[in-house]
């Protein structure tokens, strides 16, 4: 079985936020509900200081607390599919924000209003793309939760085309944030394939998950610098 994993190499990350921009463009970003962010950590003591950049997106945990609370609430809006991708169904989400309350990584975002990208200047053609022309994960609504989907619309296409072996190598089938990284700090692919770049990278870089004490078993690994965050 294919299980998608991401590895982020903080030693290589330069904090350029190309991954954030790519995510915004790919996933019909709405202001106030980012799916991807880069957090800066100051490390060391003066004068021996430095900055560590930590890109954060959904960890697609193997035991996602967001799904547990959503199911307990009876909304059943959050699912985890057979490829390990955690998705929110906007039609089922009632915007209770319970998922945001329990996520140790601060991932789920509440979309309060569908703000224009350029307030007061009208909607751009990009924002005017109709729901029928969008993937279900991009049919955004106000008053519901949103989060990173691992670019499920691309992974789904790879599965449909029978080209899961191209995931992580072919831009058409790889999450956009991982495609655009100019310093190759991001790897994405199948952890079950010992020859995949991401599987090799995790071993070579001794990458690990963050906040493991929560027992959520994230599917995003970090080659950490500056200690555990």
């Amino acid at each position: 079985m294919v299980k998608f994993i991401r590895m982020i190499d903080m030693e290589r990350c330069i904090g350029c936020r190309a991954c954030v921009a790519a995510c915004y463009t790919e996933n019909y970003h709405t202001s106030g509900a980012p799916w991807n962010a880069v957090i800066e950590h100051e490390i060391g003591t003066y004068p021996n200081t430095g900055l560590a950049y930590m890109p954060i997106n959904c960890m697609h945990c193997e035991d996602p607390p967001c799904k547990k609370v959503c199911d307990d609430m009876g909304a059943h809006a959050i699912s985890k599919n057979e490829f390990g991708v955690v998705l929110i169904d906007y039609e089922k989400c009632d915007g209770c924000k319970y998922c945001a309350a329990v996520c140790p990584y601060g991932v789920p975002q509440y979309n309060e209003t569908m703000m224009e990208l350029y307030p007061g200047k009208g909607r751009t053609p990009y924002e005017n793309v109709s729901d029928t022309d969008r993937h279900p994960t991009h049919r955004k609504k106000p008053k519901v939760m949103e989060k990173c989907t691992f670019c499920w619309h691309k992974l789904e296409k790879a599965v449909a085309d029978g080209k899961t072996d191209r995931i992580g190598r072919d831009p058409e089938y790889t999450p956009s944030c991982d495609v655009v990284c100019p310093v190759n700090a991001r790897l994405f692919g199948d952890i079950e394939d010992p020859n995949s770049a991401v599987a090799k990278g995790i071993g070579a870089k001794k990458a690990t998950q963050i906040k493991k004490e929560y027992g959520t078993r994230p599917q995003v690994y970090y080659a950490l610098v500056g200690g555990d965050f």
């Binding site: 547990k68 699912s79 985890k80 329990v102 004490e213 027992g215 959520t216």
Partner: peptide, 25 residues
């Protein structure tokens, strides 16, 4: 801090176990 929640809300804790338990698909 959310770490305080972990004291009760982990699997085997005294409150509803949000963390550390197995999720159903």
């Amino acid at each position: 801090d959310r770490a305080a929640c972990l004291g009760c809300h982990k699997a085997g804790g005294i409150a509803t176990a949000w963390y550390g338990g197995r999720a159903t698909r």
